[in-house]
């Protein structure tokens, strides 16, 4: 029997017990970031790469002081990159920063209004990164043809959006996500658009290998509590997927036996 103790998320040869991947942006402060990350039970956290604030207060805490690379798999992203060159540069800087660790989340954005990925540029950047021995987890649209293309070129995980980044609209096209999963032999991780716990559960019930989220936790009124809710939502959805749901029927089916009625 499968259970959650032996059921692991496997990405590029590493196994993870948690199927929730969490971003570290938009929190009130580093203390809240740390508490939410811990409550979520995640093992993979995304980070952004930005200029060091030269001359900043020495006592100002650093993200890596609260999110230790010894404890978490750090997944640098290319958020904010609108072209191949800046995305590839960001990944190379991240690899140097993290002492050669080569797992990255690639996103090459198309426009600021939708933050939808620019697919031709994402394909080009993915190829350059794969050629440079990066392990690429790629943010893409919920297009099954593109998802398969990214897998075939060697991306270690394909991460279709559920809805626009930060929108909290939930899974807008479950049929596409399901088709992507059916076709896939690398992990499919819904990235972006989850708004609340039930959205995460639906993603997992569809058969996603994991869900990556940031705003749904960080912008909740109580982020640490939402992080805990998301942990349970992901586990519930995964168990329901493994359990296999009952068929849908148009009409009722009595749960109590009809035999032995005395009335």
């Amino acid at each position: 029997m499968s259970n959650l103790n032996t059921d692991k998320l496997s990405i590029a040869g590493s196994d993870y017990s948690s199927r929730l991947l969490v971003g570290t942006g938009k929190y009130k402060d580093l203390e809240e970031t740390k508490n939410a990350i811990e409550a979520s039970g995640t093992e993979i956290v995304t980070i952004a790469i930005r200029r060091t604030n030269i001359g900043q207060n020495k006592d100002e805490p650093n993200l890596l002081d609260v999110i230790s690379p010894d404890k978490y798999t750090l997944l640098p992203n290319t958020a904010g990159c609108y072209d191949v060159e800046s995305a590839v540069r960001t990944c190379k800087l991240a690899r140097e920063l993290l002492d050669g660790y080569d797992l990255v989340k690639l996103e090459v954005l198309g426009d600021e209004k939708t933050l939808f990925p620019d697919i031709p540029q994402t394909l080009e950047a993915a190829q350059q990164l794969i050629d440079d021995n990066f392990k690429v987890m790629v943010y893409t649209t919920d297009d099954p043809i593109m998802a398969k293309r990214f897998e075939e070129m060697g991306c270690v995980a394909v991460m279709p959006l559920a809805a626009p980044i930060g929108s909290g609209l939930g899974i807008r096209n479950p049929y596409n996500i399901r088709t992507i999963i059916e076709n896939a032999s690398v992990p499919i991780i819904v990235d972006a658009g989850v708004g609340t716990a039930s959205d995460a559960t639906i993603a997992m019930e569809l058969g996603c290998e994991g869900v990556l989220m940031n705003t749904a936790i960080a912008e909740a009124k109580k982020p640490v509590l939402m992080a805990s809710a998301m942990k349970k939502a992901i586990e519930a959805g995964r168990e329901a997927y493994l359990a296999g749901r009952m068929p849908r029927r148009a009409y009722a089916s009595a749960s109590s036996p009809l035999d032995g009625q005395f009335f």
Partner: peptide, 9 residues
């Protein structure tokens, strides 16, 4: 350019 890790999604 000198860069570091900061919070991001």
């Amino acid at each position: 350019e000198i860069v570091q890790a900061i919070g991001g999604g």
